[in-house]
Amino acid sequence: MCLGVPGKVIDVQGSVATVDFWGVRRQVRLDVVDEPVEPGDYILNHVGYAIRRIPTGEIEATLALYEELLARADADLMAADIRGEIQGVGDDRA
């Protein structure tokens, strides 16, 4: 819940963005992010809400941790948390 997950904005419709998380596309709400978000931007997602637009130039450093973890086996606790966020973001199954 605390780590969140960064993703690339593909499309913005009002206060909902379509965001790509390592190939998984999900809807993310933009209600609480404090800067304008456009396609091509990266955002930090927490439970379906963008809380931060990641400044250009900081994207590589932000993604590095996730890429290292996602390369690991499924059994890893931290990687499983991140996968859960990626799979679950904006999913309308309830």
Binding site: V47, G48, Y49, G84, G90, A94
Partner: peptide, 13 residues
């Protein structure tokens, strides 16, 4: 008891 990933899913449900 239902598991959701986001409060937005609970609202949709």
């Amino acid at each position: 008891v239902e598991v959701v990933y986001s409060v937005a899913q609970a609202v949709d449900a």
